[in-house]
């Protein structure tokens, strides 16, 4: 059975002929998501600015 084993060994080696299909690893690297942001700080600084502008203009009007 030695020659048979030898032939089988050769066959076995030919079976591991690389294939892109078996080796395919689908590890795609995606880019991150973008989330929309809201901010209390921003909103309040706007409000604050608004009231400052208001108080300045009203002071000016009062003069």
């Amino acid at each position: 059975s030695q020659p048979l084993a030898g032939r089988q060994a050769a066959e076995l080696q030919s079976k591991v002929v690389p294939s892109k299909q078996i080796l395919h690893s689908d590890n795609m690297e995606m880019e991150p998501e973008t989330m929309e942001t809201k901010s209390v700080t921003e909103y309040f600084s706007k409000l604050h600015m608004g009231s400052l502008v208001y108080s300045c203009t009203s002071k000016r009007k009062n003069k």
Binding site: K15, I22, H24, D26
Partner: peptide, 18 residues
């Protein structure tokens, strides 16, 4: 996690035929 999307190695048609 990094392995999560990896395809499992498949038997190729030619291999199955063999």
């Amino acid at each position: 996690h990094s392995m999560e999307n990896m395809e499992l190695m498949k038997l190729t048609p030619e291999k199955v035929q063999n």
